[in-house]
Write a protein that binds this DNA or RNA. Structure first.
Lengths: 150, 150
DNA sequence: TCCTTGTTAGTCTTTCTTTGACCTTCGTCC
DNA sequence: GGACGAAGGTCAAAGAAAGACTAACAAGGA
């Protein structure tokens, strides 16, 4: 956690209390951390992606701002939805899979321990094979099916 | 203890105080000892393997680092042993994997939910590919390492 | 001696981060 | 309505780590 992006990520996350959405100023944040504004954008896109369960909205111009909102899904239809999304993908990279399972953990649909196992199972190390991203998709889908069934 | 690898090994070990895990920078360490970074990797892989009671995690890029953790507690014996056994296998069938994970569940090393996920991940459906039993072995090994790490 | 195993160094690759330059949008003030 | 400043957006390049792979070298044993 030596890098500033992780620090900024935590800082932003600490703003969500019970609330599902927060509003922030890109410039102010950048100034606060002494980094360039695009750094904030970087953190936003890498750490608060849709896969991870966040949506970003923004407004430019004077008095502009960025809104970060947690996507809150009802547990029942979220897993099937995720399965459908995964199936629609051509291939599945590790980062994408990790983002999705992180979100499942965040929303309490799986435990942290379960999330860790899923990540191990679809990691690049586990799948050091040709067509890894295709196989990963299959494995991930099968895991989701198992989760739905339970 | 004439060689530098042994010296580096001791140096790293001296960093564990009461703590079970330490974080280090490969580059810094290499620079400190005046050796090439890959030398540190060499020490890490040869002296801090699971066999020897350690697990390693790392992150690349700016602010990247290597975490070395001692394997402690109940996982100390059984999981590494199982990992070694798995590694010794040529291939791993689903039935064999399922039997192993069932045993882990029975012994309370993993929850039923976790066991179910592992089985999904290494199921024949997930691995409808050439060389399935070889890939399955790899995945299973990686899951075991993950379990040891946690 | 020759062969195997272990060590050391070096190079190239991959991943992730950081910065900067330039672009687009919005609001306000003549 | 046009000019201007204040946001935020985009993208590419550079930088910062660690990983993979390979070659060279060293030491010990058959």
């Amino acid at each position: 956690m030596a890098n500033i992006s992780d620090t900024i990520e935590q800082f932003i996350k600490s703003f969500f209390g019970d609330s599902d959405s927060i509003q922030l100023s890109r410039n102010d944040l950048a100034h606060y951390f002494g980094v360039s504004p695009s750094q904030i954008s970087y953190v936003l896109t890498t750490r608060f992606s849709v896969d991870k369960g966040y949506v970003i909205e923004s407004k430019r111009g004077g008095g502009g701002s960025v809104t970060v909102a947690k996507i809150v899904g009802t547990k029942q239809d979220f897993l099937p939805e995720l399965l459908k999304q995964t199936d629609a993908l051509d291939v599945l990279t590790f980062n994408k899979a990790a983002a999705m399972v992180d979100r499942l953990a965040r929303d309490g649909i799986v435990t942290d321990g379960e999330a860790a196992i899923v990540k191990s199972a679809v990691s690049d190390k586990a799948l050091a094979i040709p067509m890894a991203d295709t196989v990963r998709k299959n494995i991930f889908k099968e895991i989701l099916v198992g989760l739905i069934r339970r």
